[in-house]
């Protein structure tokens, strides 16, 4: 199968964040960047689908400045066949603008399946994948926690509040990937060597107008320091008393 996976470069989610002097962004100094978590699951899902079917092509896309070439190379070291950078100076937080640029490029790609992360770590928005599907007129499963492709047909599971939905869909299709579908592999040394020779094409993006911008970024208020009230079952009466009188939840 011919599968496209769109990946975003985002800071490592374990980082401690500081706000940049502008007050409208995080301070990127010293942060490690990687493929965004859910898109990483999507790359793995694509590789597994093509490995199982014993063929096909996995192509990874990233929109952004030249620093997106690093996660694209990483995806190729995991096993993707080639990569495309859609060049922009910055990556807007406007998901529809990004979706338009990706859709314009993916339209003529002849893909059976186009995968995205459920949401990117930085935007935490969950817009781009489903919007691309709608722009291309393709069926879309948003936030699939299970995915299988067989005989030209897809089945997936989606978590709902207190329930889950099992769905079927024809190909070509778009799926945005939740955790649970696949955990990304680590690139092997052989994979890393091979990725250096794989094609990475770079071309300008056809970004739509940017209508969403960050006006301010703040760190959430710190929680007061934690407190240990006691040890073992002997501490239970004190806990219950605090839940009743202080926290007032009982």
């Amino acid at each position: 199968m011919k599968i496209a996976v769109c990946i975003k470069r985002t800071p490592d989610s374990e980082s401690r964040f500081r706000i940049a002097a502008s007050g409208a962004a995080i301070d990127e100094a010293g942060l490690k960047f990687d493929i965004d978590d859910f898109a990483g699951y999507a790359v793995e899902a694509a590789l597994q689908i093509n490995e199982k079917s014993g063929g096909g092509e996995t192509v990874v896309y990233a929109l952004g400045p030249d620093n997106v070439q690093e996660p694209l190379r990483k995806a190729m070291s995991m096993g993707a066949d080639r990569a495309v950078q859609l060049r922009t100076d910055t990556v807007p937080v406007d998901g529809i603008a990004v979706a338009k640029a990706l859709a314009a490029e993916l339209k003529s790609g002849g893909y059976d399946l186009i995968l995205f992360g459920k949401h990117a770590f930085d935007t935490s928005a969950g817009v781009v994948g489903t919007a691309v599907a709608e722009l291309l007129g393709l069926p879309c499963v948003t936030a699939a926690s299970q995915l299988s492709i067989e005989n030209g047909k897809g089945t997936a599971r989606r978590e709902l509040e207190g329930a889950a939905e099992l769905v079927e869909f024809p190909l070509p299709a778009v799926v945005t990937i939740d955790e649970g579908v696949a955990r990304p592999r680590y690139p092997s040394l052989k994979g890393i060597m091979a990725a250096k020779k794989k094609p990475l094409e770079s071309k300008p993006a056809q970004l739509g107008p940017v209508r969403v911008t960050v006006a301010k970024a703040e760190l959430p208020p710190e929680r007061p320091a934690g407190r240990i009230i006691g040890e073992g079952a002997a501490a239970v009466p004190e806990l219950v008393r605090l839940l009743q009188t202080e926290a007032k939840v009982l």
């Binding site: 989610s13 964040f17 770590f121 969403v212 911008t213 959430p220």
Partner: peptide
């Protein structure tokens, strides 16, 4: 809008 998995609170225009 809470971004970065709730680690940064953003105001978007």
């Amino acid at each position: 809008h809470p971004a970065y998995a709730n680690k940064v609170i953003t105001s978007l225009t």
